[in-house]
Design a protein around this nucleic acid. Structure first.
Length: 611
DNA sequence: CACCCGGAAGCTCG
DNA sequence: GCGAGCTTCCGGGT
């Protein structure tokens, strides 16, 4: 047991790196009232659920509830590799009572992911690697003692080795005003001309930023070929993604980006949130452990712990409807504490939501569906590989050619449309939804609904139709057949194939909007596709007139109304079916291996013209 | 029995 | 009010 007292901490040369890296460390401590708990072993145990009263801002720091005891502090970290850079004890301060603590983070060899966002202590790091009084003995049991330093909110009164502006805050409490930006200094050092909002960066800005990071944090040189993306795409990358692109520096990069995004969001500079929710009522009860609103379905501790900062840094996350408390600017709306994740956490509903789904239908399921995950098991629990092989580079280069690349263009429907919803689940950077839906062949857009009932449940939550089931959802999917968004993979249950990549889908929408602006008459998707076909010099008049090409299968469907009401044109329905069948057959004739998504639509039109 | 298909009508939301 | 995009229900086929 070591009791360390800080007298004068000095900042090492490498501290700037550790300092930033530490921003991703989610440090939580437990406390126990009795002194008997102070002699715990060296292994970490999962912290108990925080008492409800600790959710309240009005409560005093719990340490004061046990002033006579020496709390045993244990830290639970997400898998931040850079924790190992904290070679020695570090000075922390309780954000609630400003009492200082010395924690040796190096001792926390057990890594857990938090399953709730806030615990007893909300620690902020003050300095790292402070001198440990010359002791060379290993610290096996992490003990701390409050320093005999003046307590109180005023940091200036504390004999800190750094200026107060260098205090790194953890993710902000939902009820507390945001602390001063920990990146204040860093932002001031950002290259001139670089917008403070990373998601507004161009490719060139990203390159400038990376070069700056190399210098600023003494990072290994990045392979710029792996970062041919704009800022939005860069922010979309997870820590693991970044770690694989730049071994040994991904977490630094990720943390810096997150902080920049968070700060931009807090300052309201974010023009639009990629996780913009739909504004609906919130029928779901908040979690007993209400916490900073999380506009994603993330349930692992890391994401659970994140507030709007992390949400903003994960633009590809799926937004649940009703809306999480993220406004259009991407910043959290304080006061709201929705916790969708705890109630509808995917790893939990896998059992809860899937009522009788059939999982024994496919022999090849195991080829693409990973084993079910524990709620605590996330990619973040496993540190990203330190080594980086050439094959990984190849992998990422190959991804740029995929049908649905990771940095695919962002849709502006935010998961409100079924196809978009599915794609967001499929392309989730952390693969959290593979228990529900997974790619079978990403290149060809073939995917399998692993858990139909569970997926339908999620879709129902998304659309606030809680009675949704697979039968209904599959009906919606079938409407996509006739507009060539989807097709059924014959002979394989729950297997579908995207026939258009997101870019195409987005473009169709944009074309529609464009045509609406240019044409005095309202342009429907039918006419859009018709125009596309005209542009392809397709001469089939029947197709132009009668082919249903949009999703308006309801009363607004002119072709069907005509077919039903006008008996003098019985061929319309026939033509419709013939054309649909034609399309389907054409699709099926295409072997998946021959599928070229970029040219498929064009080829299909040509084939139809030929026939 | 589950899955799949597609018609029909209705609903919600922008 | 209108249209898009489903949702709900259903009968029928495999």
């Amino acid at each position: 047991m070591f009791v360390l007292v800080v007298k004068n901490g000095t900042r090492s040369q490498s501290d700037s790196r550790s300092f930033i890296s530490f921003s991703a460390i989610l440090c939580v401590a437990t406390w126990r009232k009795g002194a008997e708990s102070a002699e715990g072993g060296s292994e970490c145990v999962r912290p108990p659920a925080p008492p409800p009263h600790h959710q309240s801002a009005s409560e005093s720091c719990p340490r004061r509830l046990s002033a006579s005891s020496i709390p045993q502090i244990r830290c639970w970290f997400t898998a931040c590799r850079n924790t190992t850079r904290l070679e020695g004890p570090s000075l922390f301060q309780c954000a609630w009572c400003s009492v200082n603590w010395i924690l040796c983070l190096k001792c926390c060899d057990n890594v857990y992911v938090l399953n709730y966002p806030i615990s007893v202590y909300h620690l902020r790091i003050v300095s790292t690697n402070i001198p440990s009084s010359g002791s060379a003995q290993p610290i096996t049991v992490m003990k701390v003692v409050s320093l005999q330093l003046p307590s109180g909110p005023s940091m200036e009164r504390l004999p800190l080795p750094f200026s107060p502006t260098e205090l790194l805050w953890r993710y902000p409490l939902p009820w507390a005003p945001p602390p001063p930006s920990p990146l204040g200094d860093t932002k001031a050092q950002l290259p001139v001309g670089l917008p403070p909002e990373p998601r507004l960066w161009t490719r060139e800005d990203v390159a400038v930023f990376l070069k700056w990071c190399e210098r600023e944090f003494d990072l290994p040189n990045f392979d710029m070929d792996l970062f041919q993306m704009n800022g939005k795409a860069l922010c979309l990358l997870t820590k693991t993604d970044l770690g694989e692109r730049c071994p040994g520096a991904g977490d630094v990069l990720h943390n810096v980006l997150q902080m920049l995004v968070r700060d931009a969001a807090l300052l309201g500079r974010v023009p639009s949130s990629p996780v913009t929710p739909t504004a609906r009522a919130a029928p779901y009860p908040p979690s007993p452990h209400s916490h900073p609103p999380t506009p994603t379905w993330a349930v692992d501790g890391f994401h659970h712990f994140h507030s709007a900062a992390a949400a903003a840094a994960q633009p590809n996350s799926v937004t649940l409807s009703p809306a999480p408390s993220v406004d259009s600017s991407g910043s959290p709306q304080r006061g709201e504490t929705l916790s969708y994740a705890s109630a509808y956490a995917p790893p939990v509903p896998v059992q809860a939501a899937s009522s009788g789904s059939n999982h024994s239908d496919s022999d090849d399921e195991a080829q693409f569906a990973p084993p079910p995950r524990s709620p605590k098991e996330t990619p973040l629990t496993s540190p990203a590989p330190q080594t980086h092989s050439a094959s990984q580079h190849t992998h990422y280069r190959a991804q740029h050619r995929e049908f649905f690349p990771n940095d695919m263009p962002e849709s502006n429907t935010n998961g409100r449309l079924l196809w978009d919803f599915l794609q967001q689940l499929l392309n989730d950077p952390t693969q959290r939804y593979t228990n529900y839906i997974a790619w079978k062949n990403r290149d060809t857009g073939v995917f399998k609904i692993v858990d139909p009932a569970g997926l339908a449940k999620l879709w129902g939550i998304q659309k606030n139709h809680l009675s949704m089931n697979y039968d209904k959802m599959s009906r919606a999917l079938r409407y996509y057949y006739r507009v060539n968004i989807l097709r059924k993979v014959q002979g394989e249950r729950h297997c579908y194939q995207f026939l258009r990549n997101p870019t195409e889908l987005k473009n169709i929408k944009n074309i529609s909007l464009l045509r609406q602006q240019m044409s005095p008459t309202r342009v429907t998707p039918q006419s859009v596709v018709k125009t596309e076909m005209k542009e392809e010099r397709c001469e089939d008049e029947h197709v132009e007139e009668d082919m249903p090409t949009d999703l308006s299968m309801a009363a607004s469907e002119p072709w069907r109304k005509r077919a039903r009401s006008d008996n003098s044109q019985p061929s319309l329905t026939h033509d419709k079916h013939r054309i649909s069948a034609l399309i389907g057959e054409s699709m099926m004739m295409k072997r998946e291996s021959e599928y070229n998504p970029e040219h498929y639509a064009l080829n299909l039109k040509s084939e139809k013209c030929e026939q």
